[in-house]
């Protein structure tokens, strides 16, 4: 726990202040959350400069959209995580920005599969998601983790795991159905 580790309640409170035009609250939110957001973005966009760009866009968006956040229906941190993930996914899907379709280029900037398996391994042992992922067959689990953690497309997962695209799609579909059932 560091002084920057503020609670979820504090994050919710900061977002409410931001919606009233409080720029100091935005800075406090940045100090508390940006490091985590950069790390999440970098798993997807790979390059530090792009991850920082994603987080910059995310914070401008948080500033603009804070008043639309409905605190009665979720936590601020989850809302921010969705924003940063969607920004990062948009960036890697935007072919004009970088040759993300060249798998070799991406691998050169770090091993995405390693990031995915590290995220899985780092889940708390008794967390429901960990327990349920453990029950999946390896192919389904790896496919889902590669998609979620690193933003790989189905096609990239197929290439990575050396399986036909149709198989990957079926694995993800059935794997997610099993997960939802298991997670209740």
């Amino acid at each position: 726990m560091t002084i920057q580790d503020i609670s979820e309640d504090a994050t919710d409170h900061l977002l409410a202040q931001i919606s009233n035009g409080d720029r100091d609250a935005l800075e406090a939110l940045f100090r508390a959350e940006a490091g985590r957001m950069v790390a999440i973005a970098r798993r997807i966009v790979r390059r530090s400069d792009l991850a920082e760009e994603v987080v910059q866009e995310a914070f401008v968006l948080i500033w603009q959209r804070a008043s639309q956040f409905d605190s009665g229906r979720g936590r601020a941190r989850a809302w921010m995580t969705r924003i940063v993930r969607n920004r990062a996914l948009n960036l890697i899907r935007d072919g004009s920005r970088m040759d993300f379709h060249d798998g070799a280029t991406l691998e050169a900037i770090g091993d995405r599969e390693q990031d995915a398996s590290h995220a899985y391994a780092a889940l708390p042992e008794r967390h429901a998601l960990k327990v349920c992922l453990d029950q999946l067959e390896t192919g389904k689990r790896r496919s889902i983790l590669l998609c979620y953690v690193t933003g790989m497309s189905h096609g990239e997962v197929a290439e990575k795991l050396g399986a036909p695209l149709g198989t990957i799609k079926a694995w993800i579909r059935r794997g997610m159905a099993s997960l939802r059932e298991c997670l209740g």
């Binding site: 920057q4 940045f30 985590r36 987080v55 899985y120 998601l129 979620y148 997670l183």
Partner: peptide, 22 residues
């Protein structure tokens, strides 16, 4: 539930220029 995977990302040092830009 899935956000537990995001929570495994280790917070990185953030350069101060990033806040300046924002």
């Amino acid at each position: 539930k899935f956000s537990a995977l995001d929570d495994t990302a280790k917070a990185e040092a953030v350069p101060d220029r990033l806040w300046q830009s924002i």
